[in-house]
Simulated assay, not measured.
Amino acid sequence: MKDSKFPYYFSNASSLLIPRFIYRAQAKRLLSTLTEAQKAICLDRVNYYNKCRAPFQVDSNEQSYATISGFKKTKGWTYFFDIRQVMRYFPSRFAFNYINGDVTHIPNVPSFIKSRPIAGQNQNSVVLKLNQIRHFKFIDDPVRYQDKKGMVAWRGVGFQPHRTKVIHAFYDHPQCNIGQTRPVEGQPWEKGFMSIEEQLQYKFLLCIEGNDVATNLKWAMSSNSLVIMSKPKYETWFMEGKLQAGVHYVEVNDDYSDLPEKMNYYLENEAEALAIIGNAHQWVEQFKNDKHERLISLMVADKYFTLSGQK
């Protein structure tokens, strides 16, 4: 399950040498290959990511402003490459607003972002598939649910108060292999690194939100383990806001106080656990079609540019 980042960086760096008009021609070909049913599915996701309805103006007074021709790296190469993967299909004179990083607020003007709050009027938060090399990892789990340990596993950093509450409550629980990897201060709830392969030995996987979303949610939902988490407060391209409790994952209280109760229920009701895992796999499948993913990204941006009067 080790993955190399070299192909990602090499292909993106190489693409800088390809003229933009080639990409604009590709965009038209991509759209022409979709059936009407596929277009409808794509459009549903486009309108979820980009909820703008009324015309607006791109704001050059905002710090997060750029023209496509003038767009430069501001927060790591992954954000630069992922935004550029979409923008290269459009005329270089087009302008846009964007915010990199873990965004937990709603921008003042419609802006491209990686993450947004699920609640509230979030139409100014236009979601793109950003920092995908870190977040969009899917796996092929070789271990059947039936053959896994009847316990829950989680490893992660414990800087956020809502995480430390869960860690302190369950690090020594007999049904839990839960611990923080950082900060390292000699506390009893600190535990060593645990690989994905090791975590896949457990029937249950916790997905606790960090600064925004739970980074491990994507690969966890592609596993044969059952995802347990509180109701998501933030979402990304993975559309966490559309996930249904009891259908795609097992929902617990915000403080995870009912975690043992939920585990015991699904240990006694294996068929229900397997059904949720199957639904999670179906959810993941929609993000594995690279052609559709690229086209949906282009349609999200095209809607943005159209409503901002740059068509």
Rank of each mutant, 00 (worst) to 15 (best):
R155Q: 10
A153N: 10
T181C: 04
R163H: 07
V109E: 00
G309E: 14
A271Q: 11
Q201S: 11
C42M: 13
D258Y: 14
K129W: 01
R182D: 04
N47M: 06
L205D: 01
A40G: 01
I113Q: 03
S225H: 11
I296W: 04
V227P: 04
I133H: 01
I106N: 07
F71A: 09
H105A: 05
F193P: 02
L16S: 12
L130A: 02
I18D: 04
N279L: 00
F159V: 00
V184R: 11
K149R: 07
R29I: 15
E261K: 02
Y89W: 11
D82I: 05
R155L: 02
A301I: 10
G120W: 04
R20S: 15
K288M: 13
D147R: 03
S195E: 01
V252C: 12
I296A: 07
K75W: 12
L267D: 08
Q63F: 07
A280M: 13
C52W: 04
H173W: 06
F238N: 03
S64G: 15
M1L: 12
L243E: 04
G210M: 05
L226D: 12
V227W: 05
I99V: 08
K149M: 08
F96C: 10
H105L: 06
G309K: 12
H162Q: 06
S14G: 12
Y234L: 06
V184W: 00
T104M: 01
I83E: 05
S308Q: 13
K137Q: 08
D82S: 06
W77E: 09
P174W: 03
A153P: 00
R84V: 02
E197I: 02
S92H: 12
V227Y: 04
G76S: 07
Y9V: 13
V284D: 00
R144L: 09
T164P: 00
Y98G: 06
D290R: 09
T67Y: 08
V103H: 05
G156H: 05
T35C: 09
G150K: 09
T74S: 10
S257T: 14
T35K: 09
V46Q: 06
K137E: 03
Y48L: 10
P19R: 15
I83Y: 11
R29V: 15
L217S: 06
Q187H: 09
C176Y: 03
T78E: 14
R20P: 04
Q310T: 11
S125E: 01
I68P: 02
L298V: 08
Y145H: 09
K148Y: 10
E285V: 00
Y266S: 08
Y145E: 02
P117N: 14
E209Q: 03
Q310I: 11
Y9M: 07
Y249G: 11
K39Y: 11
P142F: 05
Q201V: 01
